[in-house]
Amino acid sequence: MSMSLVQQLVDGLAALMLLVSFALLAQHRLLSVLHWFAAQGVLLAVTATIVAYGTGNHELYISAVMTFLLKGLLLPWLLWHVIKRLHVHREVEPLVNLTLTMLIALGITLFSFHIIQPIEKISESLTSDSMAIATACVLLGMLMMITRRKAITQVIGFLAVENSLFFAAIGSTNGMPLVVEIGIAFDVLIAALIFGLFFFQIRTTFDSLEVDAMHAALQDREDEA
C-alpha cells in the first residue's frame, strides 16, 4: 500500500472521527451516546491498524488491539453496566438545547481549522486536515462536558477528549512508544473505574447523578452548618 493511500485513508478516518464526535453530541438517549462512543473506539483501533500497516511499525498492531479491547469494548461495557445498575434516567438532558450545541460545534470546528494553519508548515507526517479535525474533536469533547447535565455524559465527554488526543498522537507521530501507550491505556481504565466507583458513592450520598442536584445538596448542607 502506498504512503499516499495510507494518508488518504487516515484523512477519511479523520472525517469519520469528526462525524462520530458530532453524533455523540447530537444524541438524545444515553444508550445511543454509549454506542457512538464504542464506535469511536473501534475507529481508533482501525486508524492504528492502518498507520501500523503503512509505516511498518509492528508495535502499533499491539496498540490497535489494546485500543479495540479497551475503548471499543471494555469501557462502553463498564459504562453500560453503571447505567443499568444505577437506573439512570435514559434521557441525555442537555443544559444547552441540541440545535444550539450543534451550531456551536460547527463554529468550533471552523475555529480549529483556522488555528491549525500555522502548524501545517511544520508538520510532515500528517496532513493539516486530520490535525485540525483532531483538535476539533478534543474541543467537541470538552463542549460535551460543559453542555450535559449528567455526570455520566461528562465522563463520556472526558473519554472522548482522550480518544481524540490518541487519534492526534498516532496520526502525527506515527504512533507513540508502546510503553507510553500502555501507560495511557491503563490510566484511562483506572480513571473509568474510579469514575464508576464515584457514581455509586455519589448516588448513595446525593440520591442523584445530576451535578446541579449535588450542588444544591451541598449548598443546603452549608446553610445548615
Partner: peptide, 15 residues
C-alpha cells in the same frame, strides 16, 4: 457555581 461553569471557563480559556 457548579462544575459546568468551571468547565466552561476552562474551555473558553483554551479557545
Amino acid at each position: 457555581r457548579g462544575i459546568h461553569a468551571y468547565l466552561a471557563w476552562t474551555f473558553a480559556t483554551v479557545l
